Simulated scan of single mutants.
Amino acid sequence: MQTASTDIGERMGRSQELSDSKRGPVIGCHLCNKSIRDISWLLNIPRSTVSGIITKWKQLGTTATKW
């Protein structure tokens, strides 16, 4: 049985953005040669989100939102 605190779908809807406090550690883990899968597991966020953050950081040099 899953609780709301462990179910990603309940905590983070598609329209919500990841906070700055989670985007920084994603890049930190990436720089320490952690895999996307490992980062996803460590920070409890979807792999697609981790991948998107890393891709944006590589292309733009920032993880900031566009707002």
Rank of each mutant, 00 (worst) to 15 (best):
2 Q>F: 07
2 Q>W: 01
2 Q>M: 07
3 T>G: 15
6 T>L: 10
6 T>V: 11
6 T>M: 08
6 T>N: 10
6 T>I: 09
7 D>C: 07
8 I>P: 05
9 G>K: 05
9 G>C: 06
9 G>E: 04
10 E>V: 01
10 E>G: 00
11 R>T: 04
12 M>G: 00
13 G>F: 08
14 R>I: 09
14 R>T: 11
15 S>N: 12
15 S>A: 11
15 S>Q: 09
15 S>I: 06
15 S>D: 10
17 E>K: 14
17 E>P: 04
17 E>N: 11
18 L>K: 03
18 L>C: 08
18 L>V: 13
19 S>W: 04
19 S>H: 06
20 D>E: 13
20 D>M: 13
20 D>H: 08
20 D>W: 08
21 S>C: 07
22 K>Q: 11
23 R>D: 00
24 G>E: 14
24 G>R: 15
24 G>H: 14
24 G>T: 14
25 P>Y: 00
25 P>N: 03
25 P>I: 05
25 P>V: 05
26 V>H: 03
26 V>F: 03
26 V>Q: 01
27 I>H: 02
27 I>Q: 04
28 G>Y: 05
29 C>G: 14
30 H>W: 15
30 H>T: 06
30 H>M: 08
30 H>C: 07
31 L>F: 10
32 C>D: 15
32 C>Y: 07
33 N>C: 08
33 N>Y: 10
33 N>W: 08
33 N>S: 15
33 N>T: 11
33 N>M: 10
34 K>N: 12
35 S>Q: 07
35 S>E: 04
36 I>W: 01
36 I>C: 07
37 R>H: 09
37 R>N: 08
37 R>T: 11
37 R>E: 09
38 D>K: 13
38 D>C: 04
38 D>F: 04
39 I>F: 05
39 I>P: 04
39 I>D: 00
39 I>G: 01
40 S>N: 06
41 W>Y: 13
41 W>S: 13
41 W>Q: 14
41 W>N: 11
42 L>P: 01
42 L>R: 13
43 L>D: 03
44 N>W: 03
44 N>F: 07
45 I>T: 02
46 P>Y: 02
46 P>F: 01
47 R>K: 15
47 R>I: 07
47 R>G: 00
48 S>V: 12
49 T>W: 02
49 T>F: 02
50 V>H: 03
50 V>L: 06
50 V>C: 04
51 S>K: 13
51 S>G: 11
52 G>S: 12
52 G>L: 03
53 I>V: 15
53 I>F: 06
53 I>D: 02
54 I>L: 06
54 I>T: 07
55 T>I: 13
55 T>Q: 14
56 K>M: 01
56 K>D: 03
58 K>L: 13
58 K>T: 06
58 K>S: 08
58 K>H: 12
58 K>F: 05
59 Q>P: 00
59 Q>M: 08
59 Q>D: 10
60 L>C: 09
60 L>D: 13
61 G>S: 05
62 T>A: 01
62 T>S: 15
62 T>N: 03
63 T>L: 07
63 T>I: 15
63 T>Y: 10
64 A>S: 11
64 A>N: 12
65 T>W: 09
66 K>Q: 11
66 K>I: 11
66 K>G: 04
66 K>T: 14
67 W>S: 11
67 W>A: 10
67 W>M: 11
